[in-house]
């Protein structure tokens, strides 16, 4: 069963027909041709498909596109302005925070979504005082970035990059 939806992806309005069974991830990839969100596990277990949905980081493999009519989505591609990379992206390059690069667009989106959560004062399980302000320690970064698996093992560089990119 098909349905027509409209999405705003990386600033561009897109109208597309989707099979109701199509995940948001597959709609972005197969329907719109976005390549930044990746299919790493397809079951919400790796974070490679992370995008910013209405400003918040979400996985896209476990949600149907049809339920997101009207959504505003930013992928890692949309974070850059042409050749001009987002500071977080530059930090990932400078710190060599990836190797194969497959999890990277999801890591970058997750990092920015996570920083917005920290900015809003949201605690994590690594936060000692749930009611106090949140300090972005390395332990906080690690815990908050743990939803993005990296098989190449770039974690320590990712933490460095996120710390730099947060400045």
């Amino acid at each position: 069963m098909d349905s027509e939806i409209q999405l705003r992806v990386d600033g561009r309005r897109k109208r597309l027909r989707v099979d109701t069974r199509m995940t948001l991830l597959d709609a972005l990839r197969d329907g719109i041709g976005a390549t930044a969100p990746k299919t790493g596990c397809d079951h919400g277990q790796c974070g490679s498909c992370t995008v910013l949905l209405d400003g918040r980081r979400v996985i896209t493999c476990l949600t149907f596109a049809v339920a997101h009519d009207g959504a505003d989505i930013t992928t890692a591609e949309g974070l850059a302005d042409g050749e001009w990379l987002h500071p977080m992206q530059r930090a990932f390059i400078e710190r060599d925070a990836f190797q194969c690069g497959f999890c990277t667009p999801g890591q970058v989106c997750s990092a920015l979504g996570m920083l917005a959560e920290v900015e809003a004062g949201h605690p994590s399980v690594a936060t000692d005082d749930l009611t106090g302000p949140v300090e972005l320690t390395d332990e906080e970064i690690r815990e908050r970035m743990s939803g993005n698996l990296c098989r190449c093992g770039a974690y320590v560089n990712i933490v460095d990059a996120v710390r730099d990119g947060a400045r």
Partner: peptide, 11 residues
């Protein structure tokens, strides 16, 4: 690097 951090590198 730039292609990978923006997700435009084609796998």
């Amino acid at each position: 690097g730039p292609a990978k951090v923006t997700g435009t590198a084609r796998y």
